[in-house]
Amino acid sequence: MRLCPKALWIRLVMEKLNWLRDTDLCVGTLEIVACAIVIAVSVPGNILLIFCTRRCIDDQLRTSFTLIFSLAWVNLIHNLAVNVLKIVYASAVALDSAGCKVLIFLTNFTTSEAIWFTLYIALLYCFKLCRVVHPPVEAACRKHLTCHMVLISTLWVAGAAASCPLLLYTGRTEKLYTENETNQQLSNVIYAECKTEYRNDLMEILYGKIFLVAIDLLPLLIMLLAGFRIVYLLWKHKMATCGGIWIGGDAIELEVVRACKLILLLILLIISLWVSYFSLVYCLKKFRSYYFGPPVLTVLSSGYSVISPYVLMLLNYKLIVRIRCFCCKSEKKQVTVSAIAPVSPYA
């Protein structure tokens, strides 16, 4: 029986997909390519953000710059440690128990830190926008800067402490497969070797299923509420300006409004990526065993570290000037940081 060109093309495509599914090399190659693309896009942006933000902190120590600096470091650690280990893992190079511990610990640590620092930035700019819409009677107190620095340091320590138990319970397990299991499972056996095995069921429920989920889910819920608050304040700002009650033409006010719109983008991005990743890992138990599972999870877990640095570069005018001077050295003499507007009481 002679097949028509369309049926023949569909048959060839299906045969190609089946070959890809049964090829161990392709499974590893897909994840290597995904990790390599993520690293190539994310690392330059985060390094540039760290360098320029550090220069801004030298000029004038501000909480927003320190938060951006910390978040950029979290993204850089995630890409240079977690994704590099994934490349090693996907290259058929077996990791030992220490490698599994580092992989699981850094994955959980960087994910939690990225969520908490993003929440801190969202709350900070929500407060700034509130002071724009409702101008304070008195100038802002500068004594709170020390408190912010202590809180940022506490977030680093707390994130590491919350993930430390994973170093005790995670290890490499040799999982033997029977001959009746499919090639699809065999091709993904390396992703089942790093296991977190708790000593008892109570520890697994309290720590593994409640605590680790809560430290990510709780700030995401607060971040969502902060996003609704920012939307409301932006609406109030627009209505007040259009109604002629007051005119928010100050450069600092416009910068805060623009930054809050970017914060909304970051909130939407990190919540959608986390929910997608959580749904695939916890709701679809066998998703990791599919040949396309690891690359998809890599993109979801690292997507925020790829996009966020380029959004954070636009939050502050001083940071934009630094980046412009770094990228276009010919403009360094024409554009200076002193060109920004004087700091207002709610900046």
Rank of each mutant, 00 (worst) to 15 (best):
Leu17Tyr: 03
Cys194Arg: 07
His144Glu: 13
Ala92Phe: 10
Lys143Gln: 15
Asp216Arg: 10
Leu167Cys: 13
Tyr277Met: 15
Leu123Tyr: 07
Leu48Asn: 02
Tyr232Gly: 00
Cys130Met: 00
Val306Glu: 04
Phe127Thr: 11
Ser305Pro: 06
Ala81Val: 09
Val311Ala: 12
Thr182Ser: 14
Gly249Tyr: 03
Pro309Ser: 12
His237Ile: 04
Gly244Asn: 13
Val41Leu: 10
Glu15Leu: 01
Val231Tyr: 03
His144Ala: 03
Val82Phe: 05
Lys16Asn: 14
Leu151Ser: 13
Phe292Asn: 07
Arg54Pro: 00
Thr107Gly: 15
Leu30Ser: 09
Ser344Val: 01
Met313His: 15
Val213Trp: 03
Val43Phe: 00
Glu253Leu: 00
Gly249Ala: 06
His134Thr: 10
Arg131Trp: 01
Leu151Thr: 12
Cys283Ser: 13
Thr53Arg: 07
Ile247Val: 08
Leu254Ser: 13
Ser42Trp: 00
Leu67Lys: 06
Leu202Ala: 03
His237Trp: 11
Ile210Met: 07
Ser153Asp: 11
Asn83Ile: 01
Gly244Glu: 14
His148Glu: 13
Asp96Gln: 05
Cys328Met: 09
Pro295Cys: 12
Phe287Gly: 07
Ala339Val: 01
Cys164Arg: 05
Glu138Ala: 14
Ala34Cys: 06
Lys333His: 08
Leu284Asn: 13
Ser153Leu: 10
Arg11Ser: 14
Leu312Arg: 06
Arg199Met: 04
Tyr207Lys: 05
Val321Ala: 15
Glu255Asn: 10
Met313Gly: 15
Leu312Val: 02
Thr118Lys: 04
Arg2Pro: 10
Ser70His: 03
Thr111Phe: 00
Ala90Trp: 06
Val74Ile: 04
Leu124Met: 03
Tyr304Phe: 11
Tyr277Ile: 14
Leu284Ser: 14
Ile57Glu: 09
His78Asp: 02
Thr107Tyr: 05
Ile271Tyr: 09
Leu262Ala: 11
Ala139Leu: 03
Phe105Val: 05
Asn18Ile: 00
Glu253His: 02
Thr110Gln: 05
Leu266Asp: 10
